[in-house]
Design a protein around this nucleic acid. Structure first.
Length: 358
DNA sequence: AATTCGTGGAT
DNA sequence: TATCCAAGAAT
């Protein structure tokens, strides 16, 4: 068993020496802006630091305060979030900003309990904001902390079932002083030293007393239950270009996969083969001289693979689709196009001149 | 309680 | 190429 009270006493000095300078971090000793802490924590949910950093810079430059964000239309937020994934985060981010602006006077609540009531803020994020922005004693448990704790105590039971146990063990480590720094130190340790593969135990301030290291199981912990394999869904997308050089797009449903985002019209995505050209016609946004482009767009979502065939056609002047809108190809950067749809755009443009596609 | 929800880098 | 997985939340 590690000497739990000593963990923070060893980790905080390590943090003071190795603390990473991340875009959302205030200088040492300076109180963090709760808005920036909140924004970064939402962006970092299931997302790497390198992926989130440029989005964080763009958001804080464009929306310096939570009120600025609250006053912005949701669609602008979705455009800015496009490419970062898990788009419910962006919808909840906007919703949360409005709640904070309208019901909390533009200031984030300063307790875990109150933070938990806000959209998009769960147990992890509430604890992170409370500790980092408000110096509240809170147990912050993310994937890094789970890994560090599982190794420190040599917990053999697999995730995710063992999560409650890991949380209880983490709570025994949480210090009364500098809880925010301790939380960030645990996460930094997990990100840079106690890494998923090849942990650098020689550099670890907690190596002494680490039960997994003593048992030699540090590279095996934490164990994880086997994951279900991803099925493959397929569909056909429709690339329709009008005489002005604009492409037909539409908005996805507000909820569910890619909710509220912009898409190239397509058939549904389902198990089975890519629809043949005749079958796809029934789902085409408009009748036209549709032609199958060579190749396929492949993309992997959180829980399934997608293979998308692409058909292309030219629209006549003045054509309109019931639920679609036209966007000039050179202005697609201003649309809320998720990564999979940017792949479709790239594929269509790449093959636009293979025959009559363009 | 088990599913759903993205993306891209590392290995 | 295939798999893993990263500062999780909502339902």
């Amino acid at each position: 068993m590690p000497m739990t009270p000593a963990v923070a006493d060893r980790l905080l000095p390590w943090y003071d020496r190795h603390r990473r300078d991340l875009p959302w971090r205030a200088p040492p000793g300076v109180t963090a802006d709760p808005y920036r802490v909140w924004l970064s924590e939402i962006m970092l949910q299931q997302t790497t630091v390198p992926a989130a950093a440029p989005y964080f810079r763009a958001f804080t430059e464009r929306w310096p305060t939570v009120r600025d964000l609250a006053e912005s239309p949701l669609d602008d937020v979705l455009v800015a979030w496009a490419g970062l994934g898990y788009y419910a985060r962006a919808r909840n981010l906007h919703k949360c900003a409005r709640v904070v602006a309208e019901r909390h006077g533009g200031r984030f609540p300063d307790t875990e309990e109150a933070l938990l009531e806000l959209p998009g803020i769960g147990t992890y994020t509430a604890a992170a904001i409370a500790s980092i922005a408000f110096d509240r004693v809170a147990t912050v448990v993310d994937g890094n902390v789970e890994r560090v704790v599982a190794r420190l105590f040599a917990v053999e039971e697999p995730l995710p079932n063992v999560k409650p146990t890991l949380r209880r063990l983490a709570a025994t480590l949480t210090p009364q002083r500098r809880p925010g720094d301790f939380a960030q130190a645990m996460m930094d340790l997990g990100a840079t030293v106690c890494t998923p593969r090849k942990p650098r135990c020689m550099l670890c301030p907690l190596a002494e007393g680490c039960a997994a290291r003593e048992a030699g199981t540090q590279e095996e912990l934490p164990r994880r239950a086997a994951k279900a394999d991803k099925p493959t869904r397929r569909g056909m997308a429709f690339w329709l270009l009008n005489p002005e050089g604009a492409v037909l797009l539409r908005r996805r449903a507000e909820d569910g996969l890619l909710g509220g985002m912009t898409e190239v019209p397509s058939t549904g995505w389902a198990a089975g083969p890519v629809p043949d050209e005749d079958a796809a016609m029934g789902a085409a946004p408009l009748p036209a001289r549709w032609r199958r482009l060579p190749g396929m767009v492949r993309h992997t979502f959180s829980h399934f693979h997608l293979e998308l065939g692409v058909m292309a056609a030219r629209a006549g002047a003045g054509w309109q689709a019931a639920d679609g809108f036209w966007v000039p190809v050179d202005r697609l950067g201003g649309e809320a196009l998720p990564s999979v749809m940017r792949k479709v755009v790239r594929h269509a443009l790449a093959h636009a001149n293979d025959g009559d596609g363009a």
